[in-house]
C-alpha cells in the first residue's frame, strides 16, 4: 500500500476517526442525517446512506462506513456487514460509466455472453474491473457481469450507470463504450442523457436530479400488447375502446 494513503480500518482510535470524518464534508454529513430522518427508525436509512457515500467518495470508504455508523449509533462492523452484502456497493472505484452486461440465462442465450466477451476483449478488462484510461479519453469505463435487470423483452440488455441500454449487439456495445470514453453525449434507450456513476448514486440515495421528465413513457416492447388491443378494439369489460387521438406515440 502507498504509505501516503490513509490506512484502511482500525478506526477505533479516535484520532483516526476524526481525521476520517474531515474527509466527508459537512454538506454530505448533513445529507446523510437527512436520509436517516426520512424513516421512523433511523437505521432504515442505511442503504440510501451508503449510496450517498458512493456518490460523495466514489466508493464505500472506511470513512463513509465510520460516518454512517456514528450517525446511526451502530458499530462500524455492523455497517460493514451491510455494505459487503449488496452488489451495488463497491469497495474499489468503478469508472465514470459502469457498464453492466446481463448474462442471466435469457439475455446470455440471446447474445449477452457474446456481447460480454467481445466487450471484455475490447476494453481489456474483466468482471468488476475498470478499463485503462487511454490518451485522449475523457471518461473511464468499468465492466460488470450483471443478473437479470427486468428488461427481458429488450434482450440482450446492457445497463450504464443503471440506465437501460436495450437490444444490444456486440457492435453496438463496443460503439457505446467508445462513445462514452470519447465524451460523446449518450442517451439511455428509455431515459435521459447518461449521467456519471457518482451522479446516479446520488439519485438512488433519494436526491432527485430533475431528469424524470426526460425519455419516453415506455419502450416499444412494453407497448406491443397495448397496441394490438387498440388496433383490434379489445378492452377490459365496460371500458370504451380508446379513441385514436389518445395516441400511439410516446
Amino acid at each position: 500500500m502507498n504509505p501516503t494513503e490513509p490506512s484502511e480500518g482500525r478506526a477505533s482510535d479516535r484520532g483516526v476517526q476524526k481525521h476520517v470524518l474531515n474527509r466527508i464534508d459537512d454538506k454530505t454529513v448533513g445529507e446523510l442525517r437527512e436520509i436517516a430522518a426520512r424513516y421512523p427508525h433511523k437505521r432504515s436509512g442505511l442503504l440510501p446512506m451508503l449510496h450517498l457515500v458512493q456518490s460523495a467518495q466514489g466508493r464505500i470508504t472506511p470513512e463513509g462506513i465510520e460516518t454512517c455508523a456514528e450517525i446511526l449509533e451502530l458499530t462500524s462492523a455492523e455497517v460493514s456487514g451491510v455494505a459487503t452484502f449488496y452488489t451495488m456497493y463497491k469497495r474499489r472505484p468503478v469508472g465514470d460509466f459502469h457498464v453492466g452486461v446481463c448474462v442471466n440465462t435469457l439475455c446470455a442465450v440471446m447474445g449477452g455472453d457474446e456481447i460480454y466477451d467481445r466487450l471484455s476483449e475490447h476494453l481489456g478488462c474483466g468482471n468488476d474491473e475498470t478499463a485503462e484510461r487511454r490518451e485522449g479519453d475523457t471518461a473511464t469505463v468499468s465492466l460488470e457481469r450483471i443478473e437479470c435487470n427486468a428488461a427481458c423483452d429488450y434482450a440482450p440488455v446492457a445497463m450504464v450507470n443503471w440506465e437501460f441500454m436495450d437490444n444490444q449487439t456486440p457492435q453496438s456495445a463496443k460503439d457505446l463504450v467508445d462513445d462514452l470514453r470519447a465524451g460523446k453525449e449518450v442517451h439511455s434507450t428509455r431515459g435521459p442523457r447518461l449521467v456519471t456513476w457518482r451522479e446516479a448514486e446520488r439519485v438512488i440515495a433519494g436526491f432527485n436530479d430533475d431528469l424524470a421528465n426526460e425519455g419516453p413513457s415506455a419502450g416499444p416492447a412494453s407497448l406491443v400488447g397495448r397496441n394490438i388491443a387498440r388496433e383490434r378494439g379489445w378492452t377490459a369489460p365496460g371500458v370504451p375502446a380508446s379513441n385514436e387521438q389518445k395516441g400511439e406515440g410516446e
Binding site: 442503504l47 453492466g100 450483471i146 435487470n149 443503471w162 437501460f164 431515459g191 439519485v203 438512488i204 431528469l211
Partner: peptide, 9 residues
C-alpha cells in the same frame, strides 16, 4: 431495486 435509475427518478 436500486439498479433502475430512471424508474427511481
Amino acid at each position: 431495486r436500486g439498479e433502475v435509475l430512471h424508474v427511481i427518478r
